[in-house]
């Protein structure tokens, strides 16, 4: 770790704002999001091995006239053997 490194609170603010806006715009509660995560993980786990802990759910802001998207990403390790 660099001797100059500090905690950059700007990035934290951006991440927290993203969470707030996701809640306000989608009206999805944290509990509902957790259920979505579990459902997606269950569906994917039929086919692939994943880094479950690294799953991310974020709001992608639409342009001037485009809708927002909910982006769910999870790193995939290998295809599951049938």
């Amino acid at each position: 770790m660099s001797i100059f490194q500090s905690n950059k609170t700007g990035a934290a603010a951006k991440a927290r704002l993203n969470t707030c806006l996701r809640e306000d715009r989608t009206h999805l509660t944290n509990r509902e999001l957790m259920l979505i995560r579990l459902d997606v993980l269950a569906a994917l786990s039929e086919y692939v091995e994943m880094e479950r802990e690294s799953m991310k759910v974020s709001l992608v802001h639409g342009g001037q006239n485009e809708p927002n998207s909910l982006l769910i990403s999870v790193p995939i390790l290998v295809r599951k053997a049938k």
Partner: peptide, 19 residues
């Protein structure tokens, strides 16, 4: 100064989030 050292969101972050 705060934006420069990463301790404040910059104007582009905000414009992007607010679209």
């Amino acid at each position: 100064k705060m934006v420069r050292r990463g301790d404040m969101m910059d104007e582009n972050d905000m414009a992007e989030m607010l679209a």
